[in-house]
Structure formats: C-alpha cells, structure tokens
Design a binder for these strands. Structure first.
Lengths: 212, 212
DNA sequence: GCCTCTGTTGTACAATTGTACAATAGAGGC
DNA sequence: GCCTCTATTGTACAATTGTACAACAGAGGC
C-alpha cells in the first residue's frame, strides 16, 4: 500500500486526535478534488496514507467523519470571518468587509461548492446534518443582522427590518457565490461584490423601503 | 416483481417515447422522494413498474436518463414561467410576476432542492451536464435582463447596468429559494417575495446607483 | 394463423461499497 | 529488557451497484 498525501511515514503511530485531524483533512481534500459522489472510505484513507480499516477505529463510520469534517470547515471559516471583521471598528465598514471577503480567496474557491453540495445533499437525508447546517447558517445571519442594526442606528435610518435585510443580503451573497461557483464565466467576483455593495448602499441610504 | 407507481399493467408494451417518458417521470419522483444519493437503476425501474434491465434498452445508461430528466424538468418549468409572464403585458408587471411565481407553489417545493442538488453535483463531474445547466440558467437571466431593460427604458431610469441587475436579482431569488429549501423555518415565502420586490422597487426607482 | 420485429423480463457478472475483526507492531511504563 | 496497551494493518464479507445479454411475449403485417 503506497502512501499519497500525508507527511508521516506508513505505520507511524499518531495520537487519536492527530489521526482524526489527518482523516478530516483528507476527506475534505477528497471532496474538493472529486466531489462527494464517488467518495469512498478507501479513497479517503489512501489520501490520508493509512489503511482502510483505520477509519472505523477513529470514527463511528463514514458519516460521522463527514459530519466532523463539516464541523471543522465551518469552524475554520467562521474564525476567518471574525478575524476579517476585526480589521474594522465601525459597523458599516465591517459590513463592507464581510461582503468583500465573500468574493475573494480563500472564501471564493470553486472547489468549495463540491464540499457544500455534499453537505447539503447529506442534510436532505440526515436530520442531524440539517440541524448542524441550520445552526451554522443562523450564526452568519445573526452577525449580519447585528451589523445592520448597528449601522442603521448609527446612521439614523428609520424603520428597517434588520432581520429581513440580513436574510436578503445573505441570500444575495449566497446566490452570487453559487452561480459563480457553478459557472465562473458568467460574471467576475468584482462584479458580484459590486452588486452586493450596491445593496448595502441602498440599505444605509434608507432606500429599501419595503423591508420594515 | 411487484409494480409500484405506473398505471400500465406489467409486461405491457409501450412506444419507446412513452416508456422513456415514464422512466423520466419515475427518476424525478425517486430523486424528489429519496434524494440523488442512493438513487439506483433498480429503484427507478421499480418506481416505473418495469424490470431493471429495461433502462439500458431505452437509455444509454443511468447518466443519460438523469440528463434527459433534467432536460424535461427545466423545459417544463420554463414553459410554466413563460405562461405566467403572459399574464401581464407591461415589463414591470412581468418582473413582479416573475419574482412572485418564484416563491409560490409549484415552483416553491422543498423537494425540488433534492433534484437540483443532484444535477449540480453531477455537473461538477460531467462537463456535459454543466454546459446544459449553464445554458438553461443563462436563458432565465436573459429574460430577467430583457424585462429590466424594458422597464428602465419605459420609466426613463438612466445608467442602469441591466446585465448586473439581472444577475443580482436572479442571485437574490436563488439564494432565498435555496435557504428556504434548506430550512423552511428561517423565513416565510411571503417574506422572501417581499425582499425581492423591494429590490425591484429600488431598481425602478433608480436607486441602485452602483450598478451602471 | 403464422412470422417477424422489438419491447420486456430475469438473471448473471464484475466491480465497488462500508464495516468488522483477527493479527501485527511500535511506543511508553516500570 | 520485558510487558502492556492500542494504533494500525490487511483481509474477509455481505450488500449493492450499473450493465450486458439470452430468453420471452405480444402486437402488427400479410
């Protein structure tokens, strides 16, 4: 059995935590390379440079590995976002940064779509995955809602429904991200950013009059 | 072998076109029920009430069946959309109807997400499916772009980039549709419609100033 | 009423899947 | 240096997959 991607030598003993982390990294690499279709335990273990039987020793089956991988990825991306928001102190500037980071690497990588499609597909069958996704997504929307609330308070914009505005902006970003991932030739990331920033313009100008 | 869903009796001979249509209907029912994961030739054929070997006689493999099902579904939905747009004569009203129809049954059915996830997943591996999706999607965006162009011409709104506005509105609808499909509890279809109509409000008021 | 054509059936087959499990080997305690 | 513990290996196994193909049967031409 030839190793492929791991940097440790074959047969090396790792801490359970270390090995679990390597398997999680491996499954994410596999999905980003091949998509979630055709993902097999053997492929993942080969990518991790370990024998196929090892997965059962560290995870309670393939599905749990995928779930943990989803946990890890969303956690990392969330930390990245918080770091980016930390670069500004004013809510409006933070809102701009939020949008901006969405359409730049490393956030904008068309291989991420494969990962998301895998999780979404699984969430249609496993309620636990669906619940996890809903929790993660609501965290993102809540941040948007907070930033919007703070922005309109500071700028004295009356009667804005921050919850709906947050869902709208979140959906606008997601929709543009999705379409770009499916077909990067349809528009440029800069254009997508422009469209979203335009929504923010209207929002902080008090022009989104029906959302209140 | 017991039949399940078809209305014809077992062993009945159908025209190739009829049988192909029944298989296409069956595979769509299967995906909407079980998702694209776990979709098997045997399941589809059982749903269609025919033997498993028949698929190979009418289609050049499982993948071609799925591709034809995608063709059929998108064609049907497109015809539905055109019929809806026909209910109005003015571009602004048609734009409103377009958005409105997106967040009402039969367009808004959370089981459609399973179908779309299946096609998108496949499009990540098969270039032919990806090309097909891009063609279909660009037809939808082109309609939006036309309606937007006609609207701003009629209302004398200066300097609007109809192409970007169309991508934006399309993404906003898709994003809201996606999030609602993944989690119908996050917001109501009426709220989603409200958010999109608000975008149209701003657009035809000439307020989306950065999109030009 | 037979013949031909072909839609349909049932099965066989190789390939791949996820998982369980006995055997192995390497690291740390003493 | 031995002993114990367990991370790791390799394999076996049942289940499921997509597809090919020989056999069957029913409808239409004549």
């Amino acid at each position: 059995m030839n190793r492929v991607a791991s940097s440790t030598s074959p047969g090396a003993r790792l801490t359970p935590d270390e090995r679990r982390a390597e398997l999680i990294d491996a499954v994410l690499r596999c999905i980003m390379r091949d998509g979630h279709l055709g993902l097999s335990v053997r492929t993942v273990c080969q990518e991790a440079g370990v024998s196929a039987g090892l997965l059962a020793h560290h995870f309670n089956g393939k599905e749990e590995l995928i779930k943990e991988a989803y946990r890890k990825l969303t956690k990392d991306l969330f930390i990245q976002l918080l770091a980016i928001l930390d670069e500004a102190s004013e809510p409006v500037a933070q809102l701009r940064l939020y949008v901006d980071s969405f359409f730049r690497p490393p956030m904008l990588d068309k291989d991420y779509l494969k990962v998301w499609l895998g999780f979404w597909s699984l969430s249609q069958q496993k309620a636990e995955i669906a619940t996890l996704r809903n929790e993660v997504n609501s965290k993102y929307v809540k941040i948007l809602e907070q930033l919007i609330t703070q922005s309109i308070n500071r700028l004295d914009i009356p009667n804005v429904n921050a919850r709906l505005a947050a869902f709208g902006l979140s959906a606008l970003m997601d929709g543009l991200w999705l379409e770009w991932s499916l077909n990067p030739k349809s528009f440029s990331p800069e254009e997508a950013n422009q469209i979203c920033q335009c929504w923010v313009d209207s929002l902080i100008a008090g022009e989104l009059k029906r959302i209140r």
